[in-house]
């Protein structure tokens, strides 16, 4: 019996892990993968994505990923997509981050449905086909083809069902739901609108993004402190366990480990997962959103550096980087860069 169980475990665990992976089915144009190890490579068909990896497409890039062999993710041009993970209500949850650009999701009976995140929103999904767009000004657009998506921002939840959409400006509650005719939504036009908003008042838009950075940094700090406290308690408990073994024997030790230490170990590792998750979310704002803004502004005003629009932007740029360097960098490692 034991042998059968071991055999089943050996067969099914790799199959389960395999089916949980995201794999490139199609790649066109410039599509890069930034591995969690820091390596930057050109994506190829059959490449597999792991937690912490990012996919970045260029202006001519397009990629399709399959997930659990039944679900599909379509990544458009000029898009940044990151697979992350965090602990939520005691469960480890995959997070699919749409940092910039447009991604279509078609989920079909996933074992663990991920949350979708943009700089402005977090969304929960259930058996759904939908599109998420995240623009340079940080705002997000959700359009549902089929199923339902619960979009949350600033403490307000909006549930979208088939042929409904919603816009969410960064730092604001979701707007009114609207009806959509599938196939008639002008996603490129919506992305251009985001760029126009940025051009109108770059400093204000960047200030909104900085607020989001502060939120991420605060959460990273909070979870890091929780981790430190939890780790210190865990160390004490481990010392306690040695005393228990000496005084009451190995059975009492095992019991203490199972009841007290193991849950504490899980809690401690979840804190690490979460502070890293928030730090990496902050890094994605810095690396992709701020960087795109800087390129546009620096090149546009290179002959007019005294222009007040550019000066105000540079002030905000430095503010953003001060927050990032002081409150986010302590949680990063060189491989993240």
């Amino acid at each position: 019996m034991k042998k059968v169980l071991i055999f089943i475990t050996l067969i099914f665990i790799p199959l389960f892990l395999y089916s949980q992976q995201s794999r490139f089915d199609y790649v066109e144009g410039e599509v890069s993968i930034k591995r969690v190890s820091g390596e930057l490579i050109k994506a190829q068909i059959a490449d597999v994505l792991n937690i912490g990896d990012s996919v970045i497409t260029g202006f001519d890039g397009f990629a399709e990923l399959s997930l659990e062999n039944t679900s599909k993710i379509s990544i458009d041009s000029d898009t940044v997509f990151i697979i992350s993970k965090k602990e939520k209500q005691g469960q480890k949850k995959n997070i699919f981050m749409v940092v910039l650009g447009k991604i279509g999701f078609k989920f079909d009976r996933l074992l663990n449905e991920p949350d979708i995140q943009t700089p402005a929103t977090v969304a929960g999904v259930r058996g759904t086909e939908f599109t998420v767009v995240s623009s340079l000004d940080g705002s997000a657009l959700y359009v549902v083809n089929e199923g339902s998506v619960a979009v949350e921002s600033e403490g307000t939840l909006v549930v979208l069902t088939t042929e409904e959409g919603v816009e969410v400006p960064i730092g604001e509650k979701p707007g009114e739901k609207f009806e959509v005719k599938i196939g008639s939504v002008d996603f490129s036009g919506w992305l251009d609108k985001g760029n126009d908003e940025f051009e109108k008042d770059p400093a204000r838009v960047l200030s909104d993004v900085t607020e989001k950075l502060v939120e991420y940094a605060d959460e990273a700090t909070r979870f890091f402190h929780n981790y430190e406290d939890s780790f210190s308690m865990l160390s004490e408990m481990r010392e306690n366990m040695i005393s228990i073994e000496k005084e009451k024997g190995s059975e009492a030790k095992s019991e203490y480990y199972k009841k007290e230490i193991f849950p504490k170990e899980t809690e401690t590792s979840n804190y690490v997962l979460n502070y890293r998750y928030f730090a990496l979310s902050a890094l994605s704002l810095r690396r992709y959103v701020l960087s795109s803004m800087y390129i546009d502004m620096k090149t546009k005003y290179i002959l007019d550096t005294k222009n007040p629009i550019f000066s105000k932007f540079l002030d905000e740029y430095e503010k953003f980087l001060q927050v990032y360097e002081k409150n986010v960098v302590p949680f990063l490692v060189e491989a993240d860069i």
């Binding site: 930034k34 970045i56 260029g58 041009s77 992709y288 960087s291 390129i295 546009d296 090149t299």
Partner: peptide, 22 residues
């Protein structure tokens, strides 16, 4: 590019196009 680390060729193209356009 100045203080920015650029990951994609598309972004690098934007830099050159932006400089020439300006």
């Amino acid at each position: 590019f100045h203080g920015e680390i650029i990951i994609t060729s598309s972004s690098v193209s934007r830099i050159w196009n932006g400089l020439v356009r300006a």
